[in-house]
């Protein structure tokens, strides 16, 4: 296999307690720490391992969104990706357009394997991998917790509700990754310096000739319903009594 394409989405860091803006237009992102979507980081780690085993020759990272996503691409390059592509677009770009953008790069660069996170932790959609695979008319293996590649094929273990499902797919293909696939490496300072010299190509979504949408419109964003404050009990006897009172035991 030659080329692996990995998607890196810039999202609010998973440690941040997100707050809904008072005007209901979204969540607060001003001054909030932004990071690579954790699932995407795992996808990149896997791509690097595949390459470093000699089973692929190039790892390309792609981000679609605001120009600030350069930061996340630089981190991806520091982790070890060979080159990066930024497609500048509205950060709220719809899923069809995102998948079409991936497809455009896949065709242009002759990609053999696309590795994506199984979902982005901002909108929790879990759509891009499946949609790209459909447009490309190629296999998809979602929620991967183990990947083995061989000539023209991959064997993927998927985390499904019933347990672990193993499928064999022909390449080219799209794989979306789950948390237990690997533990991403930490970036070291010298790698950050080296990454500055690696190529970062900038494109504009508007120049790709992709027809956007029709998008799902976000009318409002609200805080979730709060749970009423509970009671603290002092010991196991108190717990049993409280459960009995609620008719639960």
């Amino acid at each position: 296999m030659e080329k692996i394409l990995v998607g890196l989405k810039r999202v609010v860091d998973y440690n941040v307690r997100v707050r809904v803006r008072n005007d209901g237009t979204g969540v607060e992102t001003d001054g909030v720490k932004m990071s690579i979507n954790p699932f995407d980081e795992i996808a990149l780690e896997e791509a690097l391992r595949i390459r470093d085993r000699g089973e692929a020759s190039e790892v390309i990272v792609l981000s679609i969104g605001s120009v600030d996503a350069q930061q996340q691409l630089r981190t991806g390059l520091a982790m070890g990706a060979d080159r990066a592509i930024l497609v500048e677009a509205d950060p709220g770009l719809d899923a069809l357009s995102i998948a079409r953008t991936f497809k455009t790069i896949v065709d242009r660069d002759g990609i053999d394997l696309v590795l994506l996170g199984k979902q982005a932790i901002d909108n929790d959609n879990s759509q891009t991998a499946q949609m790209l695979a459909a447009m490309w008319d190629r296999p998809q293996a979602t929620f991967a917790s183990q990947i083995a590649t061989e000539a023209g094929k991959a064997t993927v273990t998927r985390e499904v509700d019933a347990g672990l499902e193993t499928v064999e797919i022909d390449l080219p293909a799209v794989i979306s990754v789950d948390l237990r696939l690997n533990e991403p490496r930490y970036v070291k300072l010298p790698d950050i310096m080296k990454a500055k010299k690696k190529p970062l190509e900038q494109l504009a979504f508007a120049d790709l000739g992709i027809e956007a949408g029709p998008a799902i419109k976000v009318l409002a964003v609200e805080p979730p319903a709060e749970r009423a404050r509970g009671v603290m009990v002092n010991d196991v006897a108190g717990l049993v009594a409280a459960l009995k009172e609620k008719g639960l035991v």
Binding site: V27, D122, D124, A215
Partner: peptide
Amino acid sequence: NPVSDIMSVENSHTFKRPIYAGNAVARVE
């Protein structure tokens, strides 16, 4: 474009769905 995780229906094309691990709820159309 698909709609993921409908938690309630407002009308045939408007739904509520959780985002940010359920720390916010979006009304989408």
